[in-house]
Design a protein around this nucleic acid. Structure first.
Length: 284
DNA sequence: CACCATGTTCCTTG
DNA sequence: CCAAGGAACATGGT
């Protein structure tokens, strides 16, 4: 589930659904996902609080909550890890197998479920404060991006995954952006020309913006008739094509398949223990 | 059984 | 100090 576009689409989906809803009860099924908070503290802070807004910062969801009794507002932060999902359910309905935290909202409930439990739902904000600039914000200019890459001898793909350099890029969109910019993922970041940095800056923003427009890689549910027929719905937004956006990716998870631009087989390599996909022809 | 997976943190080594 | 590499976390898919 988890890169900037997936989180952005989820936030847009949740925002109107949560606004004004009051938390009646908090159930923590997996303590590790609320670390370093305790279930008791989370219950004490959240019970009775009302959702005011939902924002995104990098891959984090930020839930702004208004408390009663003159207490200051509180910020609940969420991260989906590798496999997390957040959604609303009608209240008396079966919980998913890996429900980690459930917020009782009265007639509905908010469910954070995560089979691998790598994600977080907590009151901790330190990691959010350390994040680099938002790649789609106006403050993220080509100059800001170029400056962040100077003097770095790390491979450019590794830099794109560094959340303190730019917030929100993950393994899928790092490969996609580099292919779009026609830059080899192994290039030392500090060795890129000014022109290449500008091209990559534009490619990153284009790839992220397009993914958001298409509803990102993860469908929330299918239209009437299920998977076999009807349209796919991505967090409530109808897609522009009757296909998974995942199938529109240029290189990610396409090792051995022809590059959509030049037909050369896509290659896979491992950087920092993670797969990188690229076209050896288009990307020098 | 093997290997892979949209992420982050911590630890060790150079 | 920086960089790179590996392990850990925990479960599911192929």
């Amino acid at each position: 589930m988890p890169e900037l576009p997936e989180v952005e689409v989820l936030v847009r989906h949740l925002r109107p659904l949560l606004r004004g809803k009051r938390i009646r009860a908090v159930t923590v099924h997996r303590k590790k996902v609320i670390r370093p908070d305790s279930p008791r503290r989370l219950r004490r802070v959240l019970t009775g609080a009302t959702f005011q807004g939902v924002q995104r910062r990098g891959k984090y969801l930020l839930f702004q909550l208004q408390r009663r009794g003159g207490h200051p507002p509180v910020l609940l932060t969420g991260h989906l890890g590798m496999s997390g999902r957040m959604f609303l359910n009608r209240n008396p309905a079966p919980l998913p197998k890996h429900a980690a935290v459930v917020l009782d909202l009265g007639r509905e409930r908010f469910i954070y479920e995560d089979p691998r439990y790598f994600g977080r739902l907590s009151l901790k904000v330190e990691a959010v404060k350390r994040l680099g600039p938002e790649p789609l914000s106006r403050k993220f200019t080509p100059a800001v991006f170029a400056a962040a890459l100077t003097d770095s001898r790390r491979a450019i793909k590794i830099c794109l995954l560094d959340q303190n350099l730019v917030a929100g890029i993950g393994n899928i969109y790092a490969s996609e952006a580099l292919h779009r910019a026609r830059i080899n993922p192994c290039c030392p970041a500090g060795g890129l020309t000014v022109r290449q940095r500008h091209t990559l800056w534009r490619a990153m923003r284009a790839v992220l913006t397009e993914a958001i427009r298409f509803g990102s890689t993860v469908p929330l549910h299918h239209g009437p008739g299920g998977r076999s027929q009807g349209r796919l719905f991505y967090y409530g937004l109808r897609t522009e094509t009757p296909r998974y956006y995942r199938e529109c990716l240029q290189v990610y998870d396409r090792a051995g398949q022809p590059c959509r631009r030049c037909r050369t087989p896509i290659e896979r390599l491992v950087q920092a223990g993670r797969s990188t996909y690229f076209c050896p022809q288009c990307q020098r």
